[in-house]
């Protein structure tokens, strides 16, 4: 069976409101609020009703959920891991450039 699929690229061309974000990630909005308070997510807009989340929020939520479930870290721990991994990415790109 071969199906043709286009799919949605989760880049900065798409954004989600709170309800859509929870649905795509299959999480409760509590987690989104907690992640905002932890500084892990920064929605645009000033009230939950008008919040808009970038598509990068999706991956952050997914990774935060998996790190908590699989490694037993709490949310601040997951936040720290996410920050450090981001930094690591930047350093890896730099090293890759220098090796040339």
């Amino acid at each position: 069976m071969k199906e043709k699929e286009t799919g949605v690229v989760l880049d900065d061309n798409v954004s989600y409101d709170l309800k859509e974000l929870c649905k795509v990630c299959k999480v409760k909005d509590d987690l989104v609020f907690d992640m905002i308070n932890e500084g892990m997510l920064t929605p645009l807009g000033d009230s939950p009703k008008s919040w808009k989340f970038s598509a990068t929020s999706i991956k952050k939520i997914q990774v935060a959920v998996r790190l908590q479930e699989d490694l037993g870290v709490n949310l601040p721990g997951a936040a720290l891991a996410l920050d450090l991994m981001e930094e690591l990415e930047i350093l890896r790109a730099k090293i890759g450039g220098e090796r040339e």
Binding site: E5, G7, V8, V9, L10, D11, V24, A55, I58, K59, E89
Partner: peptide
């Protein structure tokens, strides 16, 4: 498309 970006295929 950039490394780390995801493509979401709904219902697959």
């Amino acid at each position: 498309i950039l490394e780390g970006q995801q493509i979401r295929l709904e219902g697959q």
